[in-house]
């Protein structure tokens, strides 16, 4: 039975990564047609990508959005997790469950709703509106990561610090933050990747400052630009994978 499971897992693993692998392989293929047999190896799609001004601007938009989103969501999640793991108060269970509510809504619905808010209040679409949407869907993830970090940390460390004469803010800086650091880094990496790769909200909220996924979407319609998209996709996939692996390793690391 165990052998059957392992065999199944091997097949699953192969099928899981096959499409992604093909995507990467074709980004090095010297042909605009995505078809076998492969032609010769080339880096020209990558060169074309680097020289594409629209792409570079989309890339910088994404970078700004993901950076601001990850820092904001992680800070917000860190404070929230401190509240629910370090204190007892009425409505705590309800509050910690409610923070996950944005995940219970299809992204399309969230997207059109936010779009409606901005239109009705006259707030113009910009990088800022995308950040707002991304912070909303990233906060639950940041909060989740920070809660699992804090759950493994005895509140006695902070109590001991206060007891030794350090007021709350200095205790936060000298004890809470250093101890929560693996969680903070994990959350930063995770939320950065989610924001950087997110498409639907960015599609509705970015208007004339497209993010990288929105730019790629716009290029997919043109068959001759597909290889360029693939080159870009390869870079995104490789970088995302590294960030996520580091994030997950940090998140689940057991301390002593």
């Amino acid at each position: 039975m165990r052998t059957v499971r392992k065999l199944y897992a091997a097949v699953y693993f192969f099928v899981l990564y096959l499409p992604i692998l093909l995507l990467i392989v074709f980004s090095f293929n010297d042909s605009v047609y995505i078809a076998f047999p492969l032609k010769s190896f080339t880096l020209k799609w990558y060169e074309a990508a680097i020289q594409n001004a629209q792409l570079l601007s989309a890339f910088s938009n994404s970078l700004i959005i993901a950076t601001v989103t990850s820092v904001t969501a992680t800070s917000v999640g860190l404070l929230g997790a401190m509240a629910t793991t370090r204190y007892h108060f009425r409505g705590k269970t309800l509050a910690s469950g409610a923070l996950f509510a944005p995940l219970a809504l299809p992204t399309v619905v969230t997207g059109v709703a936010l779009l409606s808010i901005f239109m009705m209040t006259g707030i113009g679409l910009s990088i800022g509106t995308v950040i707002l949407g991304h912070v909303m869907i990233c906060t639950p993830f940041a909060y989740g990561v920070m809660v699992s970090r804090f759950d493994g940390l005895s509140p006695d460390y902070e109590r001991a610090s206060m007891d030794l004469g350090e007021p709350p803010i200095r205790t936060f800086l000298r004890v809470t933050l250093p101890l929560a650091m693996p969680g903070v880094v994990s959350s930063l990496l995770l939320t950065f990747t989610i924001s950087f790769d997110e498409f639907i909200l960015a599609f509705f909220l970015s208007s004339n400052s497209p993010t990288l996924p929105v730019f790629m979407w716009s290029q997919m319609r043109f068959p001759d630009r597909l290889p360029l998209v693939l080159a870009l996709a390869t870079v995104v996939i490789v970088v995302s994978s590294v960030l996520i692996i580091v994030s997950q390793l940090l998140r689940r690391r057991r301390d002593r």
Binding site: I20, F199, W217, M220, I237, S240
Partner: peptide, 12 residues
Amino acid sequence: PCWISYLLRILS
């Protein structure tokens, strides 16, 4: 793959 761009996985 959960965390890698949904758009790109569908594209593949």
